[in-house]
Design a protein around this nucleic acid. Structure first.
Lengths: 209, 209
DNA sequence: GCGAGACTGTACCGATCGGTAAACATATTA
DNA sequence: TAATATGTTTACCGATCGGTACAGTCTCGC
């Protein structure tokens, strides 16, 4: 049952990291081997279709993680504001305040986009849809929710780029704080702590643009 | 005076395009040669330090274009709202509504970031600073202007990613429209046409978060 | 112990990589 | 026209690329 040998699943996290850091073309089999501790033989045993299959496995894992940690709560959690706050906190952690690249976003920009177009699109569509669902359950109009959800997802991607370009994680955190102020409706009495002060001055205003 | 031979300057636009489409590592000398119509010999004659120098030349050209077309008007134009609208229009055109990648943003995400860190940082710092200057001249507070400027630049980068991932330029245009509503203060009587209707409901409200 | 799969290390493949060298063509100047 | 600067072509270099082949090793059910 408990094998001594490495498992395919163990390779996925290092794979994700090496693709994040070097991109699809930049991640050579030498780098991949170093990152995973696996030789070419093992790599092609686990992923017979080479790098493409590795990336697909990584994208699947990423999608599953976001589904469980972010999308599903956004769609199903009864505490909508809590789910949104959790999304922002998870996002901040996951992307390490912009120090960590979003692999899906990076692939969307690279010329390899076509190869993984479906997975890339699915990742973002699921995110926007789930967030829109949460915003609608807040009482917002469907159209406004769509716009706002798009805006939020897009801002996170942009924040990664800008904070990396500036080499300043605070840029990312400011963007997250900004989003919290825009997405969360402050009509409850529960106290929470944000990373910076968010003045609750938009109580009751459901529509805001 | 009028040379028959190609000039270095003529190579920069094709170079920019090939780096945009394939990234730094993905743009092989074969692709570069095909894009520019120049052989390796000519390329290394114009750019003795190879690809790195080519990218630096491209970044310089890009920076100059944005300086003239965007940053300078933002800093100096007396019609501040006009300069901001012009920035949004230029940006929409330049990035072809998200169909065209931002090379600087792409480099900021790739592992080649360190090589061009200074140029990348300079590009974004200049943009944010220029936009902040315009927002301050609108009458906004300095801190709010900083936040808003960062948010706008970040949103443009994110919009490129999202619209490419969705394969839908409308995503980019919606983001631009959203930004216009947030950045432009509608207190003048001049009529203009946006790409979509922007309800002027924030008259006089200088601070908004 | 033994066969069967699962896994791994290594040698190897043709292609392509970025970059160099130098002969060659062209254009400008004296 | 001779000399020079400028640009171009071509052949070539060693290194590395992604991928394959396959012999070998390990672990397990029997």
């Amino acid at each position: 049952m408990a094998r001594m040998v490495a498992e395919r699943a163990d390779a996925i996290a290092p794979l994700a990291e090496v693709f994040r850091e070097h991109g699809y073309e930049g991640a050579s089999l030498a780098l991949i081997g170093k990152a995973t501790g696996l030789g070419k033989g093992s790599l092609y045993h686990f992923f017979p279709n080479g790098k493409e299959e590795m990336v697909r496995a990584v994208l699947g894992e990423i999608g599953q993680w976001f589904e469980d940690a972010v999308y599903s709560p956004l769609r199903n959690e009864s505490d909508v504001n809590g789910a949104i706050r959790a999304m922002l906190a998870s996002t901040d952690q996951y992307f390490r305040s912009g120090r960590r690249v979003c692999l899906v976003g990076a692939l969307a920009v690279a010329n390899t986009r076509d190869l993984f177009a479906q997975a890339i699109r699915g990742y973002f569509v699921a995110w926007v849809d789930a967030l829109q669902s949460a915003l609608i359950r807040q009482g917002r109009e469907a159209d406004q929710s769509r716009l706002l959800a798009e805006e939020a997802v897009l801002a996170i991607q942009g924040a990664i780029i800008l904070s990396r370009a500036m080499d300043d994680p605070a840029v990312f955190q400011r963007a997250i704080d900004q989003l919290r102020g825009r997405l969360v409706i402050e009509n409850d009495t529960s106290n929470y702590e944000g990373t910076t002060d968010v003045s609750p001055q938009n109580e009751g205003r459901l529509v805001q643009d």
